[in-house]
Design a protein around this nucleic acid. Sequence first.
DNA 1: TACAATATGTCCTATTTCGGACATATCAAG
DNA 2: CTTGATATGTCCGAAATAGGACATATTGTA
Lengths: 114, 114
Amino acid sequence: MERETLIETFIEEIRQRFARVFLDVLVLKLVQIEPMWGYRIIKETERTFGVKLRHSALYPLLHSLEVKGFLRSRREVKKGRVRKVYDITSKGIQFIDFYHDFLREQLQTLKLKK
Amino acid sequence: MERETLIETFIEEIRQRFARVFLDVLVLKLVQIEPMWGYRIIKETERTFGVKLRHSALYPLLHSLEVKGFLRSRREVKKGRVRKVYDITSKGIQFIDFYHDFLREQLQTLKLKK
DNA sequence: TACAATATGTCCTATTTCGGACATATCAAG
DNA sequence: CTTGATATGTCCGAAATAGGACATATTGTA
């Protein structure tokens, strides 16, 4: 019995593709809400978006976002546990703003060049 | 001499990442404007977006979009040359509509679940 | 008649990415 | 005192993807 794939399935695939490919943007947006450390970002993305991040992907990403100047970090010791709390920079905010402009552009009606 | 990478460079990278990862969406949108065949899609994306598509990526993509029911094709013979003209289906239009809804969602202010 | 453009397709390897394993340390609870 | 949660990191093999090469046919132009 042939079963037609529901359109919702394809949209769910888009959702997952987006989360995978624009993980950097997701992380910047989370940190923009409030400063966070890696472990909490993992818990928060699972709780809020149902997306399970692997820490082996997240920690190197946080490092590269710091190198790019989009995040800055400070060490924080809470009850003997060392946390690396990340905060978004003005450059990071600017990047997110540009990114949103780009998304709005994608929502415009496509026109071919004459 | 250390040279800080311009924010525009990162935005350009986003643009390219988008074109690479959401090539299916770009193709659907182009075909939505007017029915097209593979070769013309390649020429049109280069002219309009400056994105060079490889035909080895496009043709299998067109096939899979047809299998998914987002496109339908008809053979057209123009001056002895066989063209496979693709047209968007109602399912394809629905997909693009859902995709736009998703983009609008991405533009909303992020809020963490309490 | 040879070359560029139009037109569609597959194949295979190199590169990239993914995701689980390895590694380590503290604290809280049972 | 052991297990689970918190916390941060690296490494490496497998899987997926990218992109150039291979393949073929017609038409238009120099």
